[in-house]
């Protein structure tokens, strides 16, 4: 299948369920909201090593936030409800509570919620106070700078993780140019995050390893340097570098939309090939065929 000058492999991404939450961070300035959000979503690239995956969804205008200040919306995903609740408490407690002038609010609607502010309130050591407004409870935690306001309960919802596209190019510069264009296009989609640095991962992995205790290891079939050594390679002869973009989202539709925009952008930006990672259909219930993402590919 051809799209612009890129060869699109007729394959699919395999996505699977993860539990997600949306965290709204506000502060006296957009810069401080960003500081907190960057810290909150730091070291959260993969559940394999970080216990969660997180990223900044978008900036929020003051009119969009509960307290009318500039804000940032972040999404955090974990494998199960309990894990997500723990990560929320840990990360909001260490990265938002500590950050000057911030407040933190639940950004999702839904029947299932976990206790976050109700745990963080104990930092107040008995001086904390709560407020109940319009059915939502907030905790006021006294801190040296003033007061940290955090919503008690955060809604969680079953989302989709593992959306991805893999971008191949003649060299690193070309792969990076195409991947950056794809990541920029994907960031225009709401309800998704790209959890890796800059949205791009160079170390796509396979499940397992020859070494015991390692649950994931390098995906040698997509390593250009190993093309002459491995029994099977997916790297065409004219390709010298491969990059991947992983997408987590609150809905399958949002993940599909992000993949479609990324695929088109990567092709336009000079990728020689675009493919996707999967586990043969054995891991996740969601199959996202590249062929179905872009109208121009469907009839190919």
């Amino acid at each position: 299948m051809r799209l612009s000058d890129a060869e699109v492999v007729d394959t699919f991404a395999e996505a699977f369920p993860m539990w997600g939450a949306r965290i709204i961070i506000t502060a006296e300035s957009p810069a401080w909201a960003h500081e907190a959000a960057r810290s909150l979503t730091g070291f959260a690239t993969s559940v394999i090593g970080c216990k969660c995956e997180a990223g900044i969804e978008r900036e929020l205008d003051p009119a969009e936030t509960p307290d009318g200040r500039a804000g940032v919306s972040a999404l955090l995903f974990a494998s199960d409800r309990e894990g997500l609740a723990k990560r929320l408490v840990e990360r909001i407690g260490q990265s938002v509570l500590t950050c000057p002038t911030t407040a933190c609010f639940n950004g999702l609607d839904g029947p299932e919620t976990v206790d976050v502010g109700g745990q963080l309130r104990f930092f107040g050591d008995g001086y904390q106070a709560s407020k109940l407004l319009d059915g939502r409870r907030y905790w006021r935690v006294p801190v040296m700078e003033g007061e940290f306001l955090v919503e008690e309960r955060f809604a969680i919802a079953e989302g989709v993780a593992g959306g991805n596209i893999i971008i191949l190019s003649r060299d690193v510069a070309g792969a990076l140019r195409a991947a950056e264009a794809a990541a920029a296009a994907m960031r225009t989609v709401r309800e998704v995050i790209l959890p890796f640095p800059g949205g791009i991962v160079r170390s796509g992995s396979k499940v397992g390893s020859r070494y015991s205790g390692l649950v994931a290891s390098t995906n040698e079939s997509l390593c250009p340097t190993l093309r002459a050594q491995v029994p099977h390679t997916d790297v065409p002869p004219d390709v010298g570098s491969v990059l991947e973009i992983v997408i987590d989202g609150l809905t399958l539709e949002a993940v599909r939309d992000a993949m479609a925009r990324g695929l088109e952008a990567a092709a336009r930006a000079g990728a020689s090939h675009v493919t996707a990672g999967n586990y043969g259909g054995n891991l996740g219930p969601h199959r996202i065929d590249l062929r179905d993402l872009v109208p121009a590919l469907r009839d190919d």
Partner: peptide, 26 residues
């Protein structure tokens, strides 16, 4: 003397319900 974060929520809520809150108050 400070700007209570929770109060912004309350006063914005009241303004949305039609009470005459000014930006200076919020």
């Amino acid at each position: 003397s400070y700007r209570p974060p929770f109060l912004r929520l309350y006063l914005r809520h009241l303004r949305a319900l039609g009470l005459p809150l000014t930006d200076d108050q919020i």
